[in-house]
Amino acid sequence: MSQPRVFLVDDHELIRSGIRSELAGAVDIVGEADEVEAAVEMILERNPDVVLLDVHMPAGGGVAVLRALNGRCPEVRVLALSVSDAAEDVIAVIRAGARGYVTKNISGPDLLDAIYRVAAGDAVFSPRLAGFVLDAFSLEGAQLEAADVDPDLDLLTPRERQVLRLIARGYSYRDVATELVISPKTVESHVSSVLRKLQLSNRHQLSNWASERHLL
């Protein structure tokens, strides 16, 4: 596979240069932007494979970029990058269309791995994000409003639950595959399916859950 073309969006020069030096040589950095409007314009123009998107920026942050891009360039995949792993932020960017979420203290090789995986069309779940999803889609919550639950979108299958649980325990996709005796591709498809549910589920509980979690 050729090097993915990566675009950086972060309002902190220090972070951008840090990421640049970590990724140097392993990916093709096609541009960077430090604010929402410029980012949208340049992403549409340069059409990168992967956008590394900072969640917290002035004027709406990463979510604003995702909303502006919405539908205009389906082949551009977004990996959200943040210092915070507050549930609200995570759920918000994923629901706005990001394919993955990692925190900024991720190691260089892990970040690279995540970029390659997102470029290949897979979803990237950090242990924390997997934990959030398990919490948000908890069985107890589902029982509460069984009447208007769409099983295709609002419930996790037992297998997806197993996969997420292993990711939350710190397993890599490869480890998950070994543990469950399935192929890594199957693990990826499970994770992608969970991502789709996370993005499309109408469970009003999901957004409530995120904000409640913040207040707790």
């Binding site: 242990p127 934990g131 069985l139 649980r165 939350a168 325990r169 710190g170 397993y171």
Partner: peptide, 21 residues
């Protein structure tokens, strides 16, 4: 350099996983 801890509360059990690589 990293220790992963996963804690889950389920209706019937409380579990705790401690993992290192």
């Amino acid at each position: 350099s990293t220790v992963s801890i996963y804690a889950e509360v389920e209706p019937a059990t409380v579990s705790l996983f401690i993992r290192d690589q």
